[in-house]
Write a protein that binds this DNA or RNA. Structure first.
Lengths: 351, 351
DNA sequence: TTGATTTATTGGAACGTTCCATTTAATAGG
DNA sequence: CCTATTAAATGGAACGTTCCAATAAATCAA
């Protein structure tokens, strides 16, 4: 039963009548052991209720098969989906990754990274917290630990990045809106401390430029990247003298907020105001109305990132190529039908 | 710079001109060291780019300050919220917990637990995967590792549980529905392999019993505990000759599905069919219509569970008291106004 | 001064593995 | 039968910490 002191390899050796080295070999599945001996050992392992001490092993081995996933916000379904994608490939590689949440806090992230290093991780895939300092990963780098960024990148950094083509996604979405007949457009949510923001906003601007929307007719509203942020953006946008008729949102959460706020004002999403989201989270499809959004293949990017870090670990390198994932616009209901002679007129109320 | 071999405590000792023991003491913040010596050592630590090897330390120390959170489904916002609550308290205890996702798979859970044990965790808080075998935690128990279950319990197990008062929650919700004038009620979603299911269904039944709903007028529809499950439940319920007019849903996800399906059929949630959810996830408040739901204080229970496991670790025990968290019904819009002369007329409300 | 006490520091033996270099046993070649 | 060769098993030295017991240095009591 509850043997007080935990069993070690030596207890097994004694039980099985072999040497500790033999036990070690069996544990590693070495083919050097006679099958019957191995069996005997395995039986002994069972008997003494042994649990492998990975710490001790790593001490000797110097590389650890522990992989960490550092996620900026597990509460956000988008990142949760991504994490699940990563997990899938780690699992099929026989690895149990450790997930840590930084809750979008750079200092928390610092702690997490420190802890993970102390634990001797073999590699890391990180979705960095907003506002991460440029040097935050230096220690990892000098320690030679393979790291890959996913979804987000740091302003200047040699660490490989797996991310969607944000620029193109925003371009596509904006073009869609313009194609629907909108001539005064807004970009809702996000703030410049995120590289992603610049990428998406850049796509928005480029599309406006290319498709003949005057600079004065493209409005940018910074805001939280949440439902709440979306609500706020819509409020201030509609309070303008000449409000926009459509918005590209920084992400789906913002878009949901906008949809909500529209409803609350008695406006019909799609018909009265078009909105497109970004990321295409699972919920987008089930929303009322279903949200038109830029799909970035979230889980797929997660998988990709996991693969990359595995490869880096295997080839003991700290570099790898960036990967920019394809995106595509999935059109649902939140932009309504095409706008005919609607011009900039109408707009039921303004409050 | 990039010193090839990673620095150890001895390198620091050499650099600072002291013994390794001194360095070790500094690392542990012992007050036995002369402040100036400590400073010298700390400087040396910085110089050589040292990273603490927790594996080596644990080998000697025999207890590890690593705590694991094993979550059945990180993709589910409900469990994510709970996880965040736990994290909060671990963080303020100066601990970085490792999160592992079991994706509701017992075999995955097995792997995760094994890995965590090998890593030498000091304690675990677990939200067990659906269908976990009764003996799944035996190894942990005989190893004397403190474990606490959160949200879910296993049929027979001595492991302490932190969970909401599911029975009472369901009772309250059902009473609310009956008070609104409903006389033919359904319970939507879930399946008997979850203890929670029996608890909630039990509360539903007891309320019906106590408030005079005939057994023939309480309908139970098993189903997935997801939006999809909710949609399916509603479909089959409405296909009946005498369909129910209200449903208590196993959880909020199911309720969202029901709301969706109602809309799709052109029915008005609340007015045509009342629905109440369970768990009161963040989204419930922002849904259209806002969802009436049983609030269980998700994050609070997570915090509680974290506290309990910390205490258990500290007092080196493997037992603790169960904690059944208070619940309360938060009434929003999804049950509409009271049902007046609607078939089974009269009856203001009761609750 | 001398011994007792306190304050700082230190060597060395663990901790539970892995893995190299050996030893021992078994098999084959002549 | 002896030696080479192969197969199987083993002892012991690491790995980077902690912590006990011991030392060295400083302070105090007498």
């Amino acid at each position: 039963m509850a043997s007080r002191a935990k069993a070690t390899i030596l207890d097994i050796a004694r039980e099985a009548g072999v040497s500790k080295s033999t036990v070690s070999l069996v544990l590693q599945g070495s083919g050097l052991i006679r099958p019957e001996t191995a069996l005997k050992v395995r039986k002994a392992i069972e008997n003494v209720g042994y649990v492998y001490n990975r710490g001790a092993a790593n001490l000797r081995k110097a590389h650890s098969n522990v992989i960490g996933m550092v996620i900026n916000d597990l509460t956000n379904p988008f990142f949760a989906e991504m994490a699940v994608g990563m997990e899938r490939v780690f699992q099929s590689a026989g690895i149990v990754p450790f997930i840590a949440n930084t809750a979008e806090s750079p200092v928390r992230q610092e702690e997490v990274l420190k802890s993970l290093m102390e634990q001797g991780v073999a590699g890391l895939v990180v979705s960095p917290a907003r506002g991460t300092a440029p040097g935050a990963f230096r220690r990892l780098e000098t320690a030679g630990v393979p790291v890959v960024f996913v979804m987000r990148r740091l302003p200047e950094s040699r660490i490989p990045v797996i991310a969607p083509d944000n620029h193109r996604g925003a371009y596509l979405a904006t073009a869609h809106l313009i194609g629907k007949g909108h001539r005064r457009l807004a970009f809702f949510g996000g703030s410049p401390d995120l590289v992603v923001y610049h990428e998406r906003l850049g796509g928005f601007r480029e599309a406006c430029e290319a498709l003949g929307i005057a600079p004065a007719d493209r409005l940018v509203f910074e805001g939280e990247t949440s439902r709440k942020g979306g609500i706020a953006c819509l409020e201030t946008a509609l309070a303008m003298a000449a409000p926009p008729t459509a918005a590209l949102c920084f992400n789906d959460a913002v878009a949901f907020g906008v949809l909500l706020a529209l409803r609350k004002r008695g406006l019909e999403p799609g018909a009265d105001f078009a909105v497109v989201g970004f990321d295409d989270v699972a919920e987008a499809e089930h929303y009322m109305p279903a949200l038109t959004s830029v799909s970035v293949n979230t889980a797929g990017l997660g998988e990709r990132a996991a693969h990359v870090v595995l490869k880096m670990i295997q080839s003991r390198t700290t570099r790898a190529e960036d990967h920019i994932g394809a995106v595509n616009l999935v059109v649902r209901e939140s932009c309504g039908p095409d706008r005919k002679g609607h011009s900039c007129a109408g707009m039921g109320d303004a409050a």
